[in-house]
């Protein structure tokens, strides 16, 4: 599914190396978690994979099912099946949530040579998925993320994921700003999407999200590298002892 080899990335504007050789392989149907202290490069990895401006790949490669991601525009990566759930979902005044969703849905279908959905067909698809995430019709009518609470914004990200049905989902600190109930709702949404053909890369600071979304593999990222990988118990270890012990051990 997702293959990252020796990925080195610096900021475009300044000479600052953020990723210093990341290797990662996420197999089909797997859930991998990346944990790590602030500034370790977790979010940068998610941005580089989704194609955000401002970063320069100096070495290495990243591919999705054998297709090189790094040469593609963000919209092409999305059509290939890559999805990033943002840590800070963007507010777009004036663009209706429903219009946004349908434009995205049909653009991806078009890019893949599939037939676009009519307004009525699409409404049916969205309504069903929105219901599971407790997103009401009012939220669908409002402009994208405008006036949404932190929890609503994150639920809206998961709704987009459910509608677009990507094969590789990256969740960038989706748990930040969520209370216990919202975390449960979001996690249930993610778990419902787990399938053999769909993989997840869950980026988080805390172990608590992984109580809800059980990972197959946990990676610890520090200083631009993955320094340790293991099973779910690794996350518990971090929760108990913090990153400091682990860093000493690695060094």
């Amino acid at each position: 599914m997702l293959n990252i080899k020796g990925l080195k990335v610096k900021l475009e504007e300044e000479d600052k190396q953020i990723l210093k050789g990341v290797d990662l392989e996420v197999g089909a149907g797997q859930v991998h978690a990346i944990m790590g202290p602030n500034g370790s490069g977790k979010s940068t990895l998610s941005y580089v994979l989704s194609g955000r401006d401002g970063y320069e790949v100096t070495e290495g490669e990243a591919s999705l099912d054998g297709v090189d991601l790094l040469d593609m525009d963000p919209e092409e990566r999305a059509a290939e099946g890559l999805f990033l759930a943002f840590q800070y979902p963007v507010e777009i005044p004036g663009v209706g949530n429903m219009t946004f969703l349908r434009t995205a849905y049909n653009a991806q279908r078009k890019a893949r040579g599939e037939e676009e959905a009519s307004a009525a067909e699409f409404l049916k698809i969205v309504r069903e998925k929105a219901k599971d995430l407790k997103i009401d019709a009012e939220m669908l009518k409002r402009p994208v993320n405008v006036g949404f609470s932190g929890g609503e914004k994150k639920r809206n990200e998961i709704l987009q994921m459910a509608v677009l049905e990507p094969k590789m989902c990256i969740l960038d600190e989706t748990d930040s700003g969520l209370d216990v109930d919202a975390m449960k709702l979001v996690s249930d949404g993610v778990n419902a999407l787990r399938s053999e053909g769909r993989s997840f890369l869950v980026i988080t600071h805390y172990q608590r999200l992984l109580d809800h979304i059980t990972p197959d593999v946990v990676h610890i990222m520090a200083n631009g590298r993955i320094v340790k990988s293991g099973g779910p118990e690794l996350a518990l270890e971090v929760e108990k002892n913090g990153y400091a012990d682990l860093m000493d051990e690695v060094q």
């Binding site: 989704s50 955000r52 401006d53 777009i92 946004f100 995205a104 653009a107 677009l164």
Partner: peptide, 24 residues
């Protein structure tokens, strides 16, 4: 970038933002 990351091509994403701008 947010719009593009959802698969909306750049020109169409720009149109959406232009329409949003004049919406008021």
């Amino acid at each position: 970038f947010y719009l593009k990351s959802r698969g909306i091509p750049e020109d169409k994403a720009q149109d959406l933002l232009v329409l949003a701008f004049v919406a008021e």
